[in-house]
Design a protein around this nucleic acid. Structure first.
Length: 637
RNA sequence: CGCGGGGUAGAGCAGUUGGUAGCUCGUCGGGCUCAUAACCCGGAGGUCAGGAGGUUCAAGUCCCCUCCCCGCAACCA
């Protein structure tokens, strides 16, 4: 009886087509799933789409179609790319699937009946346009920190999950299962930032939008993403608390590993385990958070217009080359990066030169010296023994690397087999043996070569499945053992064909660049467009010109600068979150616009009397500067 | 003093429990001709961020201090 292995990706949010960074997760998970299958496990590989929520409701509205129509389109696109990339998932779940919605509804009900979910009057501040609940410390002068509009004191009813009740149990579990969260650094982040300070109860319903699974006993609310999306890992197996346990669930749960992006560690290592505890279900054995794939040094994002898509890339270099590239390029902990030069280099060196050419020259020799028949090996010498030892060692290394999720290292290890085989050709010089008529030795050498390639092809299968099949078929075999000696002498090899022809650097670079033209980033329609206001509302904001007379960093805050402003008729201190974009000395002497009648606030212990005007966010902030001869203290309208 | 991860040849990275610095790419030189201008060998290139710090017979590897980068959190008026 095979041991089971249940592996999952996070479900992809269906608001838009996934880029190569999103696609990486499926490729990585697929590589592990394929590897485990070859190791003899009965693998269940789950992936799918997360299709509810405000954002999708908005996207659909903008597109003028229903949310369901919208997600049908995007989910189809996602599935197409997953399929194109040869991902061998066993089930593709959509959170809009009937069985999932029914199960989520039942799960919510069960947790409510148990008392883990309770309805509460959320008392506090609420920004309607932003649909955000705010704490006392977040609001400024009764205004929303994001949009600056009035917030309402609100008694909003909402459902909350009693996270705090499970905190100690979760802490204990993490301590007792050091392998539960990987990489180790991520575990520390979770424990130190969230668990140790203490968990807040989690708001698990929304009444501000409709596109979700309704709370069965209170249809004003829909179930928010936590319970809806995370539950996919069990509902996909047929779990539903109101129904008898399915065989698939009994067999596969708990999951052996959830492969997820580093950005959603918190949901998978804190919320999800606690939901499971509340359901009296065992926890997944491992949650692995992988890093991101950047474009050069930049994060991939739609707003930067630098997104790269797996299907575009595959059109140029092929599916397996895309797989090999991202798997080999993504480090274990830190972010990886894509550059076009690198793609071409890796393709030419690893795939064309090392692997492709090896197979090609070996098959050519087999055809030339043995009429395409696998020769039979004779006695072995030291060179042969070393070749075999290297192949064996590579296999052992690969196993260790795959089992510890060091995928890039494992890819490198497999390619070392091909490199070793190339070296073996030079060590044995088959053409000389042929010339000298040393058929016995030549037979051995060619056999060993074919066999090293065969084992290498089997090892490479998790990373490049169709290449693996192609090589084996060229060898005229289907033997997929990792053991040396699988090929039967006397059998004919298959038809030789070029696996990876070298890419012309210039030509390919042009194609790659055409795929993602360096155009100005598209400016999406803003999501935060305001309602029209009268001139009197604008007039309520007192904008005045001012000059920076002093500026310094605020020690504990990475984003804040402390500015002393001269308004002509007075001086005041303002804190501003622009430290990432401006050095203090850049600002001194500059003239800018300040919101003069904003109520004071204290930020990181620094009093701030007003706000300076700037556009952008994150590390792209631009302060609105004035001409040097602008008088101070002037009203700006 | 919020927590954590890093700083190793031009680039990207390995270096398990401390024992003469490695890999891939690039570069320079050589070899070979079965092969996709491929393949193989060799050279150059690193005082392993800094501290003429500590422990040790021995430290990239452990401890201490400083500097820099990154992640998470906080913060973004």
């Amino acid at each position: 009886m095979k041991e089971k292995f249940y592996i999952t990706t996070a479900i992809a949010y269906s608001s838009r087509k996934p880029h190569i960074g999103n696609t990486f997760e499926v490729i990585m998970t697929d590589a592990i799933a394929r590897y485990k299958r070859k190791q003899g496990y009965d693998v269940f590989f789950l992936t799918g789409t997360d299709e509810h929520g405000q954002k999708i409701e908005n996207c659909a509205k903008e597109a003028g179609i229903t949310p369901k129509e919208y997600v049908d389109g995007v989910a189809g696109q996602i599935k197409e790319i997953w399929d194109l990339m040869d991902s061998s998932y066993d089930h593709f779940i959509r959170t809009t699937d009937d069985y999932h919605e029914a199960a989520v509804s039942a799960i919510f009900k069960k947790l409510y009946d148990k008392g883990d979910i309770y309805k509460s009057e959320y008392e506090g501040w609420y920004c309607e346009p932003c649909e955000a609940f705010l704490t006392d410390s977040q609001i400024v002068d009764c205004k929303c920190p994001d949009c600056g509009r009035e917030v309402k004191k609100m008694k909003e009813e909402s459902y909350f999950f009693r996270m705090s009740a499970y905190q100690d149990r979760l802490m204990k579990h993490i301590e007792e299962h050091p392998e539960f969260i990987e990489p180790e650094a991520r575990k520390k982040e979770m424990v130190n930032n969230f668990l140790k300070p203490g968990l807040q109860d989690l708001c698990v319903s929304r009444s501000s939008f409709k596109w979700g699974v309704p709370v069965s006993f209170d249809n004003k609310h829909v179930i928010y993403v936590w319970i809806d999306a995370l539950s996919n890992y069990i509902t996909a197996l047929g779990y539903n608390p109101e129904l008898p346990e399915t065989d698939a669930f009994k067999k596969n749960w708990p999951a052996d590993v959830h492969i997820i992006g580093k950005d959603i560690m918190r949901f998978h290592t804190i919320y999800w385990p606690i939901i499971l505890m509340a359901l009296d279900l065992p926890l997944p054995k491992k949650v692995f958070g992988h890093p991101w794939l950047n474009v050069g040094a930049d994060k991939m994002s739609k707003s930067k217009g630098n997104s790269i898509y797996a299907d575009d890339l595959a059109n140029i270099i092929g599916v397996d080359a895309v797989r090999e590239y991202v798997l080999a390029e993504m480090p274990y902990l830190n972010d990886g990066s894509i550059t076009f030069d690198n793609i071409i280099t890796r393709y030419n060196t690893d795939l064309a030169n090392n692997l492709g050419n090896l197979v090609n020259r070996t098959l050519a020799m087999t055809a030339k010296y043995f009429d395409g028949i696998v020769p039979s090996p004779a006695s072995e010498n030291e060179t042969d023994a070393d070749l075999k030892a290297c192949v064996k060692k590579a296999y052992d290394d690969m196993v260790a690397q795959m089992d510890s999720y060091h995928i890039a290292d494992a890819v490198e290890t497999v390619f070392s087999v091909f490199r070793r085989a190339n070296k073996y050709i030079d060590e044995t010089t088959p053409w000389t043996l042929a010339k000298n008529g040393d058929t016995e030795r030549l037979s051995t050498v060619i056999y060993n070569l074919l066999e090293a390639i065969r084992v290498g092809a089997v090892m490479v299968e998790p990373f490049m499945p169709s290449t693996s099949v192609s090589i084996l078929s060229q060898l005229g075999t289907t033997v997929d053992s990792y053991e040396f000696g699988g090929l039967e002498a006397g059998n004919p090899i298959g038809e030789a064909k070029v696996l990876f022809s070298r890419l012309d650097e210039k030509e390919t670079l042009e194609k790659l660049e055409a795929m993602n033209p360096p155009k100005a980033p598209a400016v999406p329609v803003p999501e935060d467009q305001e309602e029209q206001i009268g001139i009197e509302s604008f007039g309520a904001v007192e904008l005045r010109t001012a000059q920076v007379i002093a500026c310094e960093r605020i020690p504990k805050a990475k984003k804040l600068l402390k500015l002393q402003l001269d308004l002509g008729y007075e001086q005041r201190q303002v804190a501003s979150g622009i430290a990432k974009c401006y050095a203090p000395e850049d600002l001194i002497g500059k003239k800018l616009i300040v919101v003069a009648n904003l109520k004071p606030a204290v930020l990181c212990g620094v009093e701030s009397n007003g706000m300076i005007l700037a556009s952008g966010e994150g590390d792209q902030i631009k302060v609105v500067f004035l001409d040097d001869d602008t008088p101070l203290g002037q009203r700006v309208r």
